[in-house]
């Protein structure tokens, strides 16, 4: 109750001056997303407790931990839906801690939602196209109103590419609200892939997918990272998937970063096993 400030996130979007598509110098760029001393409290409950991590470009970084560990909360803070109580968030070297969600996305940060927050009344194709179109419209009244033919071509091309990539051809004209959970996951992923994002936050993208779909999802992620050189921060419960696609892992438990290392190191860690077993026993 002590903080009365909510201007930065609820107020009007400041015209973001950062060009989204300018080729940034590789040194600052390769840093990707960096979080320092991130703390988020809900009343008395500390959901994330001075966590530090980095998700560089060109790699898949995993963020794992038992239920309620604070993974989604971390994502919300990164994408600007929550204001951290303390700490700093940097994207490609820029401090974005106080920026509204749209400004962060315009800088190249995209995300999916654990609950697959689709545009339920629109078709699959429209959902995916909006992933690109929202970024083109930005916060500019005229750009929001009208699109240039070149932009429309770019949107169409991105949509086609993603529909192909995610294997959504058969579903493209279905209303998103009528899809199954697995299909919704893919649409949510496709939507963010259609956007012009260099850093992707994926929140439990495989939950609700069957084994074959999960495998395919893993392929998609690896392919996108290889092709675009973007960075991925992946929250995931499916350990098989995590171990196969992630280059580096962070383990969160009760809001605290209890371990970090390569998949092999994490598998060998007794602290991580204790955290998972402990949470299952409880």
């Amino acid at each position: 109750m002590s903080e009365e400030t909510d201007g930065a996130m609820s107020g009007t979007d400041p015209e973001s001056s950062a060009p989204e598509s300018s080729a940034p110098e590789s040194s600052a760029h390769s840093t990707g997303l960096q979080i320092k001393d991130l703390t988020i409290r809900f009343g008395g409950n500390t959901a994330v407790d001075s966590a530090d991590f980095a998700a560089p470009l060109g790699r898949v970084t995993g963020l794992i931990g038992p239920n309620g560990a604070g993974k989604t909360t971390t994502f919300n803070a990164c994408s600007g839906l929550l204001r951290p109580s303390q700490g700093e968030i940097r994207l490609f070297g820029k401090d974005i801690t106080g920026r509204p969600p749209a400004a962060r996305a315009q800088l190249g940060l995209g995300r999916t939602f654990q609950r697959m927050d689709l545009f339920d009344s629109l078709t699959v194709e429209q959902n995916i196209a909006l992933g690109r179109e929202a970024g083109l419209a930005r916060s500019h009244p005229l750009k929001q109103l009208l699109s240039t033919p070149a932009e429309m071509r770019a949107v169409r091309a991105a949509t086609e590419e993603v529909i192909e990539l995610c294997g959504l051809r058969a579903l493209r004209h279905e209303i998103a609200g009528s899809l199954s959970t697995g299909q919704r996951r893919l649409v949510d992923l496709g939507r963010v892939l259609a956007g012009d994002f260099q850093m992707l936050l994926l929140d439990e993208p495989s939950s609700g997918l069957d084994t074959a779909e999960t495998e395919k999802f893993g392929e998609i992620v690896t392919r996108v990272v290889a092709q675009r050189g973007c960075g991925v921060l992946l929250v995931e419960h499916d350990m098989g998937l995590v171990m196969s696609v992630c280059d580096y892992l962070y383990v969160l438990d009760f809001g605290q970063m209890i371990f970090e290392g390569t998949p092999a190191e994490v598998r060998a860690s007794s602290a991580v096993r204790a955290a998972y077993l402990g949470s299952e026993a409880a």
Binding site: G80, A102, L118, F119, G131, R138, S139, G195
Partner: peptide, 14 residues
């Protein structure tokens, strides 16, 4: 979903 739209880069207030 306005929130999602903003995470895709749209200034929804505009």
């Amino acid at each position: 979903s306005p929130t999602t739209l903003s995470t895709l880069g749209l200034g929804v207030n505009v």
